[in-house]
Design a protein around this nucleic acid. Structure first.
Length: 525
RNA sequence: CGCGGAGUAGAGCAGUCCGGUAGCUCGUCGGGCUCAUAACCCGGAGGUCAUGUGGUUCAAAUCCCAUCUCCGCAACCA
């Protein structure tokens, strides 16, 4: 048997402090599309996602809710997992930083780094809010008051462990120079290099003693491991790295092919994470894709602005694939995307209902009407065939090339260009006119065959973005092969097979009615 | 002068690396078709490609320079 090439892809783990909004969900959806794409290419994909469950904020929220931190994160992690499932995220492993294997691995890692002198004890100084028990940095504390409660801050310090970042700085610089594609988009790399690496790295605080909800430091239990050493290591502990070594899975999948993250946590992935790995003597990830944010209207989504859009609400209104399609098609590669209900409806109606769904419906309907639902043998030709085939080829190439570069919306657009071309082909060839002339029957057969074949290719190319609908399309054609390879070659659809009845893939949405419905719902909240 | 990115039709974007008819989607106006989900197809209008009567060139959205505007980053909230 062939030995399939491994592909390890991760999302950032979601902070389990509350229910994720639509902006938080681009990360897993984008990663899922890539994971499905790589699977369709025949890779042995391991797709990991999960939750980050420690820290002061969670401890405070749990206290406020009158539950233990563990109870609190159990609830939120469940919620996050439910939403991931609702979105069809095809993860292979869901890691929680409260999982016991993760905890013990992090503890071992901490001790190792301490023993080899990369971690040392010092004082952490910052602006402290007594009631909230929280530290703030100079930039955060500019106003002089606590960001949570608004009370005045005072200068405070506590004992803490630090990681010697400077020790690895040159090695990291060299790695980044030698691997310019390590982080995409490129502008992000420059930001990090110029703002952090060139001026010289400061050491990173890796423990805290002002709160307790974290992974205890074995040799000094009044300290808990502080965020990044805990959170980032999930990428290897999820594969079974126990702090000393990994098992079979680790050997197979590490280093990661890509970490999909939001642009807000680039620094941690491009600087701290590689340095931790260097200190552990483990290989560095191959690529980091830092995607932009999905904004609500023109603003960042936040509860105080009252513009938060939740994925489960969206799914209820627009379906799973409607939401996935919107996120993937509307987010540019390097600049922020926006989401409004109006735009979701526009994209849904224009692309999914009118262009794609209607194409499928009219093609199946004609197959039924003119050929009794049997895939006809293409025995004639029209002057439009070659252009249609060329478009199918271009759609395939455009899809694959853009997906490889993580240009997800461009990849989708390339696919839809085939759907648009196929709709045009119907008008050009006017099958209803051909059907009136018995002599034209071979030509009619060709037209219908070509349309069905285009739909098949569309079905295959859409499995990564809108898997449920893609499957419906392929099922209606009686096609099982979803490999990318099967869409590369035109004409693979077998003649003589039976196709299903015409159906509505995406029902058109009445914009006015839907918006009113949503407004009423939000008012009732 | 902190660093980086961006400014292209009413909106959202591609094209810029490798100079040579300004392109896509949506919207809008007009027409066509009837297989189809009031869907689909065609055509029109709409852009001095931020500014500079800048530079290089036979030729600049594309390369160089200056200016203006917007956005991101500038160290431990994830």
């Amino acid at each position: 048997m062939e030995n399939k090439k491994a592909f390890y892809i991760t999302t950032a783990i979601a902070y389990a402090s509350g229910k994720p909004h639509i902006g938080n969900v681009y990360d897993p959806v984008a990663a899922d599309a890539v994971a499905r794409f790589k699977r369709s290419q025949g890779y042995d994909v391991f797709f990991c996602t999960g939750t980050d469950e420690h820290g002061q904020k969670i401890e405070n929220k749990a206290t406020a809710a009158g539950v233990t931190p563990q109870q609190f994160v159990d609830g939120v992690a469940g919620q996050i997992k439910d939403i991931w499932d609702m979105l069809g995220i095809s993860y292979d492993h869901f890691i929680r930083t409260t999982d016991s294997y993760h905890i013990s691995a992090v503890q071992k890692i901490f001790e190792r780094l301490l023993a080899q002198g990369d971690i040392y004890k010092d004082k952490y100084e910052g602006w402290y809010c007594e009631p909230c028990e929280s530290f703030f940095t100079d930039t955060q504390a500019e106003s002089g008051v606590c960001l949570d409660c608004g009370r005045p801050l005072r200068r405070e310090h506590e004992e803490a462990y630090f990681f010697k970042m400077s020790k690895y700085q040159d090695r990291l610089m060299k790695y980044i120079d030698e691997n310019p594609d390590f982080i995409i988009p490129d502008s992000r790399r420059k930001e990090m290099v110029n703002n952090f690496l060139k001026p010289g790295l400061q050491d990173l605080c890796v423990s805290r003693s002002s709160f307790t909800w974290g992974i205890p430091v074995l040799s000094d239990p009044k300290h808990v491991t502080y965020v990044w050493l805990d959170a980032l290591t999930n990428y290897i502990t999820a594969l079974g790295f126990d702090g000393e070594q990994g098992g079979e899975k680790y050997a197979k999948y590490w280093p990661a092919d890509v970490h999909i993250i939001g642009k807000d946590i680039i620094r941690f992935h491009m600087i701290y994470w590689p340095i931790f790995l260097m200190a552990l003597g483990e290989p560095l990830p191959k690529k980091i894709f830092a995607h932009p944010w999905m904004l609500s209207g023109m603003d960042k989504m936040s509860k105080s602005r009252g513009n938060v859009v939740y994925p489960d609400d969206l799914i209820r209104h627009f379906g799973l694939d409607g939401v996935r399609y919107y996120l993937l098609s509307e987010m540019p590669f390097a600049s922020d995307g926006t989401i409004t209900y109006e735009n979701v409806i526009l994209r849904y109606n224009n692309d999914l209902a009118n262009t794609l769904g209607n194409l499928v419906a009219r093609t199946l309907s004609m197959t039924k009407k003119y050929f009794g639902g049997v895939i006809p043998s293409p025995e004639g030709t029209t002057e439009f065939d070659e252009d249609l085939k060329a478009t199918a080829k271009a759609a395939y190439d455009g899809y694959v090339n853009n997906m490889e570069e993580y240009h997800l919306s461009d990849a989708l657009d390339a696919v839809f260009s085939l759907a648009r071309r196929a709709n045009k082909y119907i008008d050009e060839t006017a099958p209803w006119a051909l059907a009136k002339d018995e002599e034209k029957r071979p030509v009619l057969a060709t037209v219908i065959y070509n349309l069905l074949e285009c739909i098949r290719i569309l079905g295959v190319l859409l499995t990564s973005a809108i898997p449920t609908s893609a499957e419906k399309i392929l099922a209606s054609l009686g096609v099982n092969d979803q490999t990318l390879e099967s869409a590369k070659e035109y004409g693979k659809l077998a003649v003589g097979g039976e196709v299903g009845e015409s159906f509505v893939l995406f029902a058109r949405i009445d914009s006015q009615k839907k918006l009113a419905e949503i407004e009423a719902e939000n008012a009732a909240k």
